[in-house]
Design a binder for these strands. Sequence first.
DNA 1: ACCTGAACACCGTTCAAGT
DNA 2: ACCTGAACACCGTTCAAGT
Lengths: 239, 239
Amino acid sequence: MDVDVAGASTATATATADDARPAGTGRRRGRPSTPVLSQEAITRVTLRLITRRGYEAFTLAALAKELHVSVSALYNHAASKQQVLLWAQDAINATIDTGPFATLPWDEALASWARSYRDAYADVTPLIPVMAVLPVSDAPGSLAMYETVVAALVEAGWSGGEAVNAVVAVESFVFGSALDTAAPAEIFDVSEDAAPVFAAAVADRHRRYGRGAATADAAFDLGLDALLAGLRARHGSGA
Amino acid sequence: MDVDVAGASTATATATADDARPAGTGRRRGRPSTPVLSQEAITRVTLRLITRRGYEAFTLAALAKELHVSVSALYNHAASKQQVLLWAQDAINATIDTGPFATLPWDEALASWARSYRDAYADVTPLIPVMAVLPVSDAPGSLAMYETVVAALVEAGWSGGEAVNAVVAVESFVFGSALDTAAPAEIFDVSEDAAPVFAAAVADRHRRYGRGAATADAAFDLGLDALLAGLRARHGSGA
DNA sequence: ACCTGAACACCGTTCAAGT
DNA sequence: ACCTGAACACCGTTCAAGT
C-alpha cells in the first residue's frame, strides 16, 4: 500500500484532489452509482489529518468533512473510530523498512530498522499507546515485519524466545523515543534554584547537541548504540 | 505525599471511607462550612479510578460521583481535566525510588531506578503519552527526581549533556516497556501459516519465560541489561 | 449496497444562583 | 469561597429513509 502520509508524491495544486468526492460534486440523496468511500481513501485522509493537525483534532466529523461525506457514511465502511485508527496503524507499519535484514549483519540491520521504525511513528505519536497494545494478528502489515526481523535474529543464532524479547525491547525503546520527539523543546527548562545540577546539565546538553529535535536525536542515538552494544555482547557481532 | 494508589493501607470495609463527602451526608445547596474537595482528595480518587477501571472509564462525571460531588464543583479546584491528570502524574512520580543513587554505583542505581519507574507507570499506561511530553517545570516531584539522577551521573564522571541524554534514553525505554505491560497476553498469537518463524519463536518464548506479565518482564530485563551494559562500556563500571 | 440527516447518550466546560 | 443544577457545544454511534 502506498501510504504517502504528507501527500507529497501525489500533491497537486488543489487540496481536494486527494479527497473522496470530486470537487464541485454536490451531495445527492441515496446510494451513489459508484462508491464514494473506501478503506484506502479513509486511511489516506486519516493519516493526512493526524500528521498535519494532530490526534486531538482528529474527529470523525473532521474526517467526514475532508472526505466531503456525512459522518454516518463512514459507518458503511468502518465499524468504529477505533477501526479507522487500526487501518492507520497497519499503513504506517507498512512503511517501516525491513530491507536491511536481507543484506546487513543482524546488529546493523536491527539498528537501521529501529531508526526507520521511530521515524514512522514520530509523526503520529498519539497513536503509540493504541498500537503498542494491539494484537499483531489483526494487522497483516505488522506481522510480515515481525517475521522478517525475528527470522534474521534466529538465523544469526539467537534462540526464538530471546529473539522475540530483543525485538520487544528494541520496540519499547523505539516507542518511548518516538514519544520523546513529540515533547516541546522547553521540556527541561528549569530554574537553577530548583535543580542546579540538572539545570547546568541541560544547558551543557544544548551546547553539545543543539535544541529541539537535535537533542531527541542525540538521546535516541546514545540509547540505540548502548542497547545494541549490550545485545552484541550477548550474541557476538553480526559481521 | 502518600499516594496509596490501591488504597491498601487505608482500606476499610466501606468504599466511601476514602471519599470526600462522609457517607450519609446529603448534598446541600450553597457553600459548605468546610470545603468538601481538595487537590489531594481529587488526586487520590483519580489514581484509584484509573488504576481500577482504566483510563477510558475516567470521566469527570465518574470522578465527581466517587467524590459525592457535582461535576462543576471540580472546577473550583482544578482548571481542567488535564490539570487533574497532571496532579496524578506528579503523585506517581513522587513514588519512584531514587534512594539507591545515594548508596549504589551509578549503573546499579540507574537500573534500580528504571525498575521502580516502570512499576510506577505500569498501572497507569494511558497517562504515559500525556506525561512523556509534559514540561517537568510544572511538576515539582519530577524535578527533584531528575536532579538526583543527573547529579549521580555527573558525580560519576559523565558530562552534563550526555547524562541528560542517558536519562532520556532510559526513560524512553521505561515508557515503552510500561506500555508493553498493558499489552494483552495474546498479542503475539499468530498462525504458523502467516508467519512460521515468528510463530515458532513466540512458542519458544512462552516455553522459556512463561506467559503474560512474565514475558513482558523478560523483555524488560533483557533490554535493561543490554542498555546498561552499553552505557557501562562508554563510561566504565560504577563500582 | 451506500449515502443523508435526525436522533441519542455522553463528554468537558461555563455560569448564574445559593449560602 | 465553594457548592448545585441548568445550559452549551461537541463527540461517537445508531437508524430510518432515500436511491
